[in-house]
Nucleic acid binder design. Structure first.
Lengths: 332, 332
DNA sequence: GCCCATTGTCGAAGCGCTTCGACACTCACC
DNA sequence: GGTGAGTGTCGAAGCGCTTCGACAATGGGC
């Protein structure tokens, strides 16, 4: 493999000149630059990663802490990972993927061995132990999600509160006065999920503020086969339903409604909120407030890079929701 | 951050002694080793990754080439990625994730900058351009899948041929004489998919060998709403159906059958083959020949490590299928 | 009691790069 | 024509580690 010495020899200059020509950190005469470039091309020179890390201050590697658990939704997870990897490559960074279920050791390791320049942390819970660790590590980092203690941390996330409010607002504007919310599984709320309770609380608050009667229920694939039926019995005047649950539960709901001859949207308006999957292929296409995983992932990388450059203040950044109508709501 | 010099000073030995004590490449007196260990613990020493790469011969990083395309099934993709990451960590390796849709440049980059010690390549098509590149790179590597030209390459894959044969064998043993196969989408076959045609061909061959009448059809979520209906019309004597398609198509099939009052298994025996998802949560649990993504991923890492140690011959390794009965087949 | 093999430790070279300070040189300016 | 401010290039130090060869120190065999 060619080294910088080889390039220097072929170009007839010193190695420091080669280094400056390639990094652009000092001005180089056009003739010399051309000779260096052609030597690089001729030799297929690629700087040695280890040497660069050791001598320089950057590794051009980003760590992604993406532990998995039972509630992880693979497609959503993948959207995040891929968007982060893609955004990183655009600024010439590679992604080191840390998937250990016990993530602290891995983060410590990559940080203190100076393997990575920054860290992106996915799927944080409200009291995620990675947050205080990250604070200690003093490495550029971005958190996807909003933990309880955001002090000094840079966070990006979808604006779940605004999404809940948007859903209620749209339905209320259509005249709906009694709205149900089918949430995620109880397990998700219990393990300190970030987004599920935020959506729920904002939903209830928004309904209250608008004088709308609200009913919240958690889904439970195991035991509650007919959640929607239960909801309709408990809130007989319910004319609209907001779904903030996973794909499988969506299917079950649509299936139940079909079975009970409940027509969407004339009998029941349905909105899918914060879904990471397409609602187009369901038996009935649903109005949706999509979860923009790509945007969050990309933004997390950008914010980490900004810290690397030193121009950034710790802050929480929320991505505004958008409502996409597909004909599953109608005024009442 | 503490360096090896600090450790040496605290332990009262030279840095080379520290290095040998930590690597175990030369014998070290028990007293000295204890002093080194406690110094390491006291200082929280972690060897600098760049320095280690530069001085040593290993980087302890593995690249995973996992490009994505329209037909990628997120859960399966994730199983592979996670199992590879996990297996790598077990041998103290980190995973560098390369997801670019145009993967060649990335592979060249990580290889010639000596960033990684080896490469695992996922989801190769029959004439994947990554294969010849990999051959050039002369880096330890493992391919998941079996390309046309396997010369000099180490490949791991599920034994799709054996799986197809197993499905036919089981059904034939139960007395089924006319069996349908619903395959993946046409797009998948066209883009040179590895596994889909292998399964199809082996299925047809096995059926022919057993004197079983076979019908093969590709699924097409867009236009063919009622593939199973079509199949049943085309092969009226069909008493068994093998599904080698994605999760969504599985659901559609079960839905159609339910609608047409076709009972499983009395009217039609159904087997799901090479599915990367659980068939337990369908309306009817299906007999399945699961795709052991975790095994393939793990094995790919093991084979790469073996090459790193120098004790391995290039070869193709196929993981045998297993049949899991769930009650969706019965003798006819 | 001597020799040789073994064991444990050390010094120093070197991996390939970045970056600092030095140093010619050129050119505008008074 | 001398001065000063760029401009382009180079030499050398050093990043933190691995590893080779050297060399005491120990102990067993005769």
């Amino acid at each position: 493999m060619a080294t910088i010495h080889d390039v220097a020899r072929v170009a007839g200059v010193s190695i420091s000149t080669v280094s400056y020509a390639l990094s652009g950190k000092r001005s180089i005469g056009p003739a010399v630059r051309a000779r260096v470039d052609s030597a690089v091309a001729e030799l297929g020179y690629q700087a040695n990663a280890g040497a660069r890390m050791l001598a320089g201050t950057q590794t051009n590697i980003l760590a992604l802490s993406a532990p998995m658990h039972a509630e992880t939704h693979p497609p959503a997870f993948m959207s995040f990972v891929v968007s982060i990897a893609t955004a990183a490559r655009e600024v010439d960074y590679d992604l080191l993927l840390l998937t250990e279920t016990e993530p602290l050791a891995g983060l410590r390791r990559v940080a203190s061995s100076k393997l990575v320049d920054g860290i992106v942390v996915m799927d944080v819970s409200t009291d995620d132990p990675r947050v205080p660790l990250l604070r200690d590590l003093r490495l550029p980092s971005a958190i996807i999600g909003v933990p309880d203690d955001v002090d000094g941390m840079t966070c990006v996330d979808f604006d779940f509160e605004a999404a809940a409010d948007l859903a209620v607002e749209r339905l209320a504007a259509l005249g709906h006065r009694e709205i149900g919310l089918l949430g995620h599984s109880a397990a998700l709320y219990e393990r300190g999920s970030n987004f599920a309770p935020r959506f729920r609380d904002a939903f209830l608050a928004s309904a209250a503020a608008r004088g709308v009667k609200a009913l919240f229920t958690m889904s439970d694939l195991g035991s509650r086969a007919d959640v929607v039926g239960e909801m309709r019995r408990e809130l007989p005047g319910m004319t609209a339903l907001v779904l903030n649950c996973n794909e499988e539960e969506h299917r079950r709901v649509l299936h139940s409604l079909e079975r009970d001859d409940v027509t969407i949207p004339s009998d029941l308006a349905v909105v899918s909120a914060c879904s990471s999957f397409s609602t187009d292929n369901f038996t009935t296409a649903l109005d949706v407030i999509p979860l923009p995983a790509e945007k969050s992932g990309r933004r997390a990388v950008e914010l980490t890079m900004a810290q690397l450059r030193g121009d950034s203040e710790a802050h929480v950044e929320l991505i505004p929701p958008e409502y996409v109508a597909k004909g599953s709501t109608v005024s009442v």
